[in-house]
Amino acid sequence: DIIVVALYDYEAIHHEDLSFQKGDQMVVLEESGEWWKARSLATRKEGYIPSNYVARVDS
């Protein structure tokens, strides 16, 4: 799995977006363009995230 960590807070604009806080970790489910589908490890919610707001966690 690709794990990313939030670099900034993000408040969902559309209902399919995923809100998150700086430091939150998410599993990337699908990478396509600038918006990635991800699942929050904390809340288990899924939605689209702006890929420029996150960084990959080296395992």
Rank of each mutant, 00 (worst) to 15 (best):
A38W: 02
R39L: 09
V5A: 04
A42C: 11
V27W: 10
H15N: 13
H15T: 13
K22W: 04
L41H: 04
E16L: 12
H15Q: 14
Y48T: 06
E16N: 14
A55W: 08
Y8F: 12
V27Y: 09
H14L: 07
S40H: 15
E11I: 15
G47I: 01
L41D: 03
A42M: 11
A6V: 02
V54E: 01
E34K: 12
D58I: 12
S59A: 13
S59R: 10
I13W: 09
E11D: 11
Q25D: 03
A6S: 03
W36D: 01
D17M: 14
I3N: 04
N52G: 12
T43M: 03
D9G: 07
T43L: 04
A38Y: 02
E31K: 13
A38C: 12
M26F: 15
M26Y: 02
W36I: 11
V28L: 13
E16W: 15
G23V: 01
F20D: 00
L7K: 06
V5D: 01
M26K: 00
S40D: 08
K45F: 07
R56P: 09
Y8E: 07
G47C: 01
K37E: 03
R39P: 00
D9N: 10
I3F: 08
I2P: 08
A6C: 06
I13C: 14
K22I: 08
V28N: 02
V54I: 07
L7F: 03
L29A: 03
H14M: 08
E31I: 14
V54D: 00
Q25H: 15
W36E: 01
R39F: 11
I3S: 03
A55H: 09
W35C: 09
A42H: 10
V27L: 14
G23C: 08
I13R: 13
W35M: 10
E31D: 15
R39Q: 08
A12W: 02
K45M: 12
I2A: 08
N52F: 10
I3Y: 10
G47K: 01
A12K: 06
S32T: 12
Q25L: 15
I13L: 12
Y10L: 03
R44M: 14
N52E: 10
Y48C: 12
L41E: 05
M26H: 02
W35F: 10
R39T: 05
L7T: 03
Y48Q: 07
S59H: 11
V27R: 07
S32I: 13
Y8M: 11
P50I: 03
W36M: 13
A6P: 00
P50M: 07
E34L: 14
L7W: 03
N52I: 09
I3D: 02
W36Q: 03
L41Q: 06
R44F: 15
R39G: 02
T43G: 06
D17T: 08
I49M: 02
